[in-house]
Amino acid sequence: MNPLRLVTAAITTAALSVWFIGCGSEAALVTVSDSTDYIVEESSTIKESSTAEGLSAETSLSRDGFVFDHLPTRESRRAFYTAPPVIPHEVGDGDRECLTCHLQEKKFAGRLAMATPHPELKNCQQCHVRGASPEFMGSKQLSVETDWIGLKEPTEGHRAHAFAPPMVPHREFLRESCLTCHSASHPNENMRLDHPERVNCQQCHVQDKAKTEIIVP
């Protein structure tokens, strides 16, 4: 598992990203300082802090009112949880050089191209097809009448108790490299890693077998 360094570079290609660095500190999902219902024992530290670490046990357990705002976008790109996401940016049929942008995380003036967790697989478009082909957009042919309901994304990994590290709610197969998705610069708090200095993820974060185990009779 490779901890990835954050790479900032000037734009040299017309590559595309659809993630933005998230909102300013005031626009957190539920700002503790905005909530007047929240009862705090030791008020000062909680109010000033804007990261998860400063929150007490009750806050981290209470997910009511949390809107997992990365999930709609994630789900719009996947037929079901753990399906290969469709390519959310324009890509021509002649474009094959995905790894130019997706081998290592790349930031372009605030935009982020995520690194792939499986760069050893080179036939990207075997699994990742383009989402909504640009040149055919706007045509009636795009609508698909289907009743398919796919497996939902888990909102987070289960925690045994308030301070426990969340369990990993997905298989590691094809996702062996944690930091590619849980990058310290991921735009959404819920995916973003707030302790990138700790590199041995599996020491604390174990598989949640209830969600991940595939046992075939």
Binding site: V86, V129, S133
Partner: peptide, 11 residues
């Protein structure tokens, strides 16, 4: 009739 596949290659 599969959304991801049709949208990737509609015609």
């Amino acid at each position: 009739r599969i959304k991801e596949l049709h949208q990737a290659m509609p015609k």
